[in-house]
Design a protein around this nucleic acid. Structure first.
Lengths: 338, 338
DNA sequence: CATTGAGGTCGAAGCGCTTCGACGAAGCGC
DNA sequence: GCGCTTCGTCGAAGCGCTTCGACCTCAATG
């Protein structure tokens, strides 16, 4: 592999000049720049990442810690990753993923302490997440996707679940629905103080109460059969229901089955509104789904920007609460005349 | 952050002695070891990854390149990642994920050329995948999960789809089924020469012909509604069908809906056998699913081992074709008497 | 016309580790 | 008791970069 010295020799300039052409931290004449660039091209030169990191005290790597709990990196998470990768690349950083269970923050601490990354994005943050402390105690800056109970002046990017659920209830009530059930994530998420589940739950209940309606909030495992079973049961026990708000990627598909089996036509007899899901998921549905789009790519992008600001102490700390955009398509309609 | 010199000072030994206690590449007396370890603990010392990588010419990082096409890192891919992470950690390596579209091998080349990883695992390999060349041309060893048309003497770990489909057809025919359809991945996968889709298709057809049966192989988008639509159509057009072999994580759930809607009881009237899916998916099904378990964790583990062998030139090149294990549970049963 | 300052380049000093050669102190066979 | 190897330790030479201070040149300034 060609080193910078090789490039310098071939271009007949000094080592440092090559470095400055690359970093742009000092001016370099056009003529020299051309010589150097030709030499680099000829040798197929690439900076050695470790050497650069050591000398510059900066790795140009950002890590994204995602929990390996549950089934998989779903579509929503995937969107976040995409956004983060793009934003990082634009700034000359690489993004790497650290699959680390949220139950083993020590592993995260180890990783961070080795300084292989300049900053860490922590994903799927619980309200009292030990991982934040694990990273920060290693002296590595960190940004949250989601947020803890008290984020302080840390960098975070979250979805505005209060707004999302308020919008959902408003949309459905404006269509005349009164008995609206909310199908949340799994009970385990609620128990683990997983922010989205907790906040959505509270916001839904508040929004219903505000309108003098009786909330019906339930949790559901993130699988199609669980959704089907649960929805079937709800339909049987609450015959007056006319709409579901679903914040559960996979249960969504089971809910659709249950409605078909119960002989309910969507949206004539029944409305379904999906909350905070990726566009990709909405396309997987069998008809144009009414949904509130999760701002996945923006979450990733903003989190990276915030983290980079922190690194370069362009001090714009603080958080962003991103709103979901309502896309009313054909699974929500006027409440049936009872 | 404490450096190795700090540790050496505190322990009153030389820098190199500290290094040798850590690497074990030269003997260190028990007394010294204790002193050094105490000093390290006291200072909270951790090796600086970049410095180590530069000096040792080894980053102790393995990268896993996974394509960002499609919806997400599904359960199967997740399993592979888990296995790989574990195997890497056991060997003192870190695993990082590189989300890189398979359509932009240049990005992969760039990444590899910077030598931020000692080796690259390439996932979801197509039969003619440009990514392999992209990595190898940067002088970085690479291992495949899946394999190209001609893997040469490269390291690869694949699923034995020939065997899996043969087992599937055998299992169902031994139960008396004669009209068995095969629901493969998406047409796009077949068009992209994605190995699993291609090999499974061929193997299914061969296995059916061998038994004098007429194959019915179809492709299906990886979504529940696509599965439902397709299965519904197949049931209508081929009333004699009594079994589906499904190699499509999400379509599986749609297939189940279609059967319910067609009034077919599983397994009395109809059998479903899922192929090469993660255990996690089988648990998501609404009854004990008959399936051939994908050896996900083993794939990841073996690929990492193979790659590490390559790095340390413990020359055990070559590939491994892993078999799926049949778990006959309650979605397959004797063919209905016609 | 001397003075300043910016543009452009170079040499050298590290960054925090690994590893090589060297060296004294044991331990061994004969 | 002699050389021999092995053990345990040290000092120093890098690994391939970034960056600082220094230096030279050539306007522009008053």
């Amino acid at each position: 592999m060609a080193t910078m010295q090789d490039v310098a020799n071939l271009a007949q300039v000094s080592l440092s000049t090559v470095s400055y052409t690359l970093t742009g931290k000092r001016p370099v004449s056009a003529a020299t720049r051309v010589k150097v660039e030709q030499a680099m091209a000829e040798l197929g030169f690439r900076r050695h990442a470790a050497a650069r990191a050591l000398a510059a005290r900066r790795t140009h790597v950002l890590a994204l810690a995602y929990p390996t709990y549950g089934v998989a990196l779903g579509a929503t998470l995937n969107e976040i990753v995409q956004g983060a990768v793009e934003a990082a690349r634009e700034a000359g950083y690489e993004l790497v993923l650290w699959p680390v269970a949220s139950t083993e923050p020590e592993v995260l601490h180890e990783l961070a302490a080795q300084r292989t990354a300049d900053g860490v994005l922590v994903m799927e943050v619980a309200l009292d997440d030990p991982r934040i402390e694990a990273v920060e105690s290693a002296g590595v800056p960190c940004a949250m996707i989601g947020r803890t109970q008290d984020p302080g002046d840390r960098v975070w990017v979250d979805i505005d679940f209060e707004d999302a659920l308020t919008q959902s209830v408003r949309h459905l009530t404006s269509l005349g629905h009164r008995q609206i059930a909310f199908i949340n994530r799994a009970q385990a998420d609620l128990d683990a103080h997983y922010g989205p589940a907790v906040r959505a739950d509270e916001a839904y209940i508040a929004a219903m109460h505000e309108r003098g309606l009786t909330p019906l909030a339930v949790t559901c495992d993130v699988t199609p059969p669980a959704g089907r079973r649960l929805a079937g049961q709800l339909l049987a026990e609450h015959p007056g229901l006319t709409a579901f708000i679903v914040m559960n990627e996979l249960a969504l598909f089971g809910v659709a089955s249950a409605l078909r089996e119960a002989g309910r036509q969507v949206p004539q007899d029944f409305s379904i509104l999906a909350v905070a899901i990726a566009e990709g998921i909405s396309d997987m549905y069998d008809r144009p789904l009414s949904y509130l789009a999760a701002p996945g790519p923006d979450q990733g992008r903003l989190a990276v920007r915030g983290l980079l600001d922190l690194l370069d102490d362009r001090t714009t700390h603080g958080g962003a609460n991103l709103r979901c955009v309502l896309h009313p398509r054909s699974t929500t309609g006027p409440a049936p005349a009872s």
